[in-house]
């Protein structure tokens, strides 16, 4: 049965408390290193901070999921091993993993703690998901954002674990966990160093006419007129000039966020067990606004009422939202 658990982002201890207070069923977070896919400067938790945060969450009946969802490069596995051991010692409720080596280590050394398969593993077929379940005891898969609701419904029938889907936030375009665009320009890897468009390589320039350009490692990603909304400086949402076009154009996708608030009942009906809100890099204000809006919506649906979700467009990238592939494969 779908419980429609709300899985909420926590980039700092204060954001974690905000998410818990706003009604999160579970929060997900990471350490201050490359073991998680939001390895941003000044973000995330020290082991001491995680200890007190786990205590706070557990007092309110909220679970804590630790993201260890990057891929250890050869010779650096110790960092992931230590992170798993520390998380286990501090009493986290589940690990979110992508790499098979990390999954195998936790399954053998900490068999009592649940394993969730990160979206970074890009497991989108029943065959792939079953492989993780059978070999590492994975209890939940976070599905990549490329499937329609009928496809999710079908997968649910063919796998032995719970399904979690993203419902709000950043909307990456590439196969999750495989994107090398940042690596190409900056030398840092999204999937091994845990950061897409590292802030140290980003620069914003303000021009005389009020426009603003965003650059990554010296390459212009976009230039926003003074009356245009802006987006993140990620290559997949960049606007580029090419020889065959007169104007710059969004080659992959425009700045936009995922918002599935209108599809929640269908997702529940399809057997989705948990809903994930993206945004560990966002502020407490975002966490408070988005978590309370979805808390209210999920409670309304569970009680058989029409969900009346608050307007969240002001918090979306480029102030635009999409239902992406969940509604139709033709979204782009």
């Amino acid at each position: 049965m779908s419980l429609a658990e709300l899985i909420c982002p926590a980039g700092t201890p204060a954001a974690l408390r905000t998410a818990v207070d706003a009604g999160a069923d579970a929060v997900y977070c990471g350490f201050q290193d490359a073991t998680n896919a939001r390895n941003f400067p000044g973000l995330n938790f020290t082991p001491d901070e995680l200890a007190s945060s786990v205590a706070y969450a557990h007092e309110q009946g909220t679970k804590v999921l630790l993201a260890l969802n990057t891929y250890p490069p050869a010779g650096k596995f110790d960092l992931w091993r230590q992170a798993a051991d520390t998380g286990a010692r501090l009493g986290v409720d589940a690990f979110i993993v992508a790499d098979m080596g990390v999954a195998d280590y936790i399954a053998r050394i900490h068999p009592g703690i649940r394993l969730h398969l990160s979206v970074q593993a890009a497991a989108s077929s029943p065959e792939a998901i079953r492989y993780y379940c059978e070999n590492f005891g994975v209890k939940r898969v976070v599905l990549p954002r490329i499937l329609t609701i009928p496809e999710i419904r079908q997968i649910r029938k063919e796998i032995p674990c719970e399904i979690e889907t993203f419902i709000f936030g950043n909307h990456g375009l590439m196969i999750e966990g495989r994107c090398s665009l940042t690596n190409y320009l900056t030398g840092q890897s999204t999937n091994m160093d845990g950061v897409c468009s590292p802030a140290s390589d980003v620069e914003y320039k303000r021009h005389e006419d009020g426009s603003m350009s965003s650059q990554l490692a010296g390459f212009t990603i976009d230039c926003f007129r003074s009356d245009e909304k802006a987006g993140y400086p990620t290559i997949c949402k960049g606007r580029y000039r090419t020889a065959h076009r007169d104007d710059a154009y969004y080659a992959f996708e425009e700045p936009i966020s995922l918002n599935l608030s209108r599809l929640l009942p269908e997702l529940i009906d399809a057997g989705v067990h948990a809903f994930k809100i993206e945004g560990r890099q966002r502020s407490k204000s975002y966490v408070r606004g988005v978590v309370s809006a979805f808390r209210q919506a999920v409670d309304d649906i569970r009680a058989g009422r029409q969900a009346n979700i608050a307007d969240l467009v002001a918090l979306t990238e480029g102030q635009k939202q999409t239902q992406g592939a969940f509604e139709t494969k033709k979204w782009r």
Partner: peptide
Amino acid sequence: DGDAAFFSRDLEVTGDTEAVVRLRNALDD
């Protein structure tokens, strides 16, 4: 939310982006 204010262009950031991200995260905690 700082990102939302940036998207809407009400907030403008120039110079060392990492410094700004760190300051934002420090204050947000």
